[in-house]
Nucleic acid binder design. Structure first.
Length: 296
DNA sequence: AAGCTAGACAACCGCAGAGTT
DNA sequence: AAACTCTGCGGTTGTCTAGCT
């Protein structure tokens, strides 16, 4: 028997997400955590399949994402990682805090590929393209510095590993012994112990849940317990136990201009209920951490 | 101003793997 | 072991926009 489609596609919306849909999705995840994605459309009232919701969240709405162009350091790192891992974008992304595989893949296809070709490097093999000898001398020198000092691709072992086992083994070693102390390593040192693969799944009780959202979570009860982590039905705002959440540093870089969803959620909540969406303790944490954007 | 084009990036599609029943 | 669900991944397509004619 073949695999069933992830969702019934009849009547489902496709294409770009609207601010309203973003709001619904964020509300849903704030309320229920990242529970079963298949249940998200029902919970949120969105006419989207769960897969689409997951993609929207992981690639765009997640609060720990960086926005904007990749920095020079990040770009260099992508090139180095790609030379070893090939098109394994998720693995590459796992070494770049706050960046998604999709973002890196897009950046590679639209920027880096062209840049490398202009420099006379084949973006797939990371070796000089045959006609490289026709390039100006300066460009060839630049190519060398971009990848690693003046070593050739062969010296660096830049060919893709031939077997999966080799690739895995190589991948393990990438961030440890094989790199010379380059800018890449320095960059990694600035991001200690952070990896998007290691971002912990947030459970509902760990999330900052605005009162109105939590209180409206009754709809959650209609679903099987396995697909929805419940919020205590006896919820009272004064009883809300909010943990101290260690927000990644990258959230400070989250461009307020790029996104209005969270703001609009808080606006909406304030407008409806006149309540503080965050309790004082959490707000104090945000103040303490020099929260960059004024959400309130 | 209107039409066209290319670039950028958001979103979709199909598949594979892991886990569960 | 087979059937099924869910999630993640990589390739591809669609949409939007800025710049050019």
């Amino acid at each position: 028997m073949g695999r069933q489609p992830c969702c019934d596609k009849v009547g489902l919306k496709k294409g770009p997400w609207t601010a309203e849909e973003d709001r619904k999705l964020i509300n849903c995840i704030l309320t229920n955590g990242q529970c079963c994605w298949r249940a998200v459309p029902k919970l949120s009232g969105l006419l989207r399949c769960g897969k689409s919701c997951r993609l929207r969240w992981t690639n765009y709405l997640r609060p720990d994402l960086k926005r904007g162009l990749l920095s020079d350091d990040e770009e260099k790192m992508v090139i180095e990682l790609h030379s070893r891992l090939g098109n394994r974008w998720s693995k590459i992304a796992s070494h770049l805090p706050g960046r998604t595989d999709n973002e890196i893949k897009n950046h590679w296809n639209t920027h880096i590929k062209k840049k490398l070709r202009r420099m006379g490097i084949d973006p797939m093999t990371h070796k000089p393209i045959p006609s490289a000898d026709e390039l100006p001398h300066q460009q060839q020198q630049h190519v060398g510095t971009l990848v690693d000092e003046n070593k050739s691709s062969d010296e660096l072992g830049l060919q893709h590993s031939s077997t999966t086992a080799e690739m895995e083994a190589e991948e393990d070693s990438i961030m440890t012994s094989r790199f010379t102390p380059t800018e890449t390593e320095a960059f990694l040192c600035k991001s200690p112990g952070f990896c998007t693969d290691e971002v912990p799944m947030m459970e509902p009780h760990e999330m900052i849940v605005p009162y109105a959202v939590a209180a409206s979570s009754a709809s959650c009860a209609a679903l099987p317990s396995s697909s929805c982590s419940s919020v205590d039905s006896s919820f009272e705002p004064e009883n809300l136990q909010l943990p101290f959440v260690e927000w990644p540093e990258s959230i400070w870089l989250w461009g307020a201009d790029d996104f209005g969803g969270w703001d609009s959620i808080y606006d909406e909540l304030d407008g409806k209920l006149g309540l503080d969406p965050f309790n004082q303790r959490q707000r104090a944490v945000l103040d303490q951490e020099s929260w960059k954007f004024e959400l309130f």
